[in-house]
Design a protein around this nucleic acid. Sequence first.
DNA 1: CGATGTCAAGGAATC
DNA 2: GATTCCTTGACATCG
Length: 315
Amino acid sequence: MGLGFAVKVLGKEGLKSNDSRRWQSDPRLSVSIGYLHRIFDYLQESGITMYRISSEIAPYITHPDFPQFHRQLDECEEELACLGLRARELGLRLSMHPSQYIVLNSPDERIYASAVRDFVYHARFLDLMGLGPEAVIVTHGGGVYGDKTAAIQRFVERYKRLPENVRARLVLENDEKNYTVPDIVQAHEQCGVPLVLDNLHHRLNNPNGLGYREVAQECLRTWQTDVTPKVHFSSARTEARTVNRRNRKTGEVTQVQAAPLPSQHSDWVDADEFVEFLEATAGIRDYDVMLEQKQKDLALLKLRADLAQRGITTR
DNA sequence: CGATGTCAAGGAATC
DNA sequence: GATTCCTTGACATCG
């Protein structure tokens, strides 16, 4: 089982995950690629084999108002091939996760069109790196718009019409508000999209009270036999945090103990909870785990150590 | 330098 | 139909 983390590196100073300057400063994908090389160095040093690349890696590349950014992939073909070669040498499993604004099933044709543009850019980015089918693009079901069946149907029809290289990488994850595991299973049955199980989202959005084993069985079987399935795992924050709250009228700032929202990610993985998940899903099929904790790579390394103490080894 | 405001983008709830 | 929240981190701006 491989363990991965998302985007931001905390274990080493000065590692940026993308060129995040504003458009006025002419940010560039080539700068981001340089950052990724440094991150790959760190992954190699720390023995981490899975990583989610920032979706902001190519700044403004699909922004309708800034055509000067739209050709960045063409400009960086060689650099991307070189970066991808390195990723393969290091045995990295890479992935991407477009932002919440990318909604394939929106009834608004313009939003649909921009979602396709964004997926096309993500897929081409991974293609230019020469990565295999394990390098997936994760998305959510989108909005419900008052009729979930119709909304799922729209996702399915549009998925079928995506370019082949996008369909080869796009995978669907259950979310904490709209699309449950049974909902995304319905989408899979109609278009074949592989499914990513997110344990925390499942805990928050599980009206039928399904157990980890049954939802894992449903999701893991949706992946081709030659690609290792991926799940998302995170422990929820349970402790209250001290937050500064500003009074709207007076501007006065007071410190308040904020109860955790059930959907907030905790700093660290609860190893007991993780083992519980492992045991619940044992024997179904091998899978990789993308961790989504606040402490990012540090949480991964701590979990790896905690698991090793229990005799469980991870990549 | 620290504090605060802003950011390209959607959806849903609220009025 | 318009406004606000959701949630997030880093950049930009202001004092």
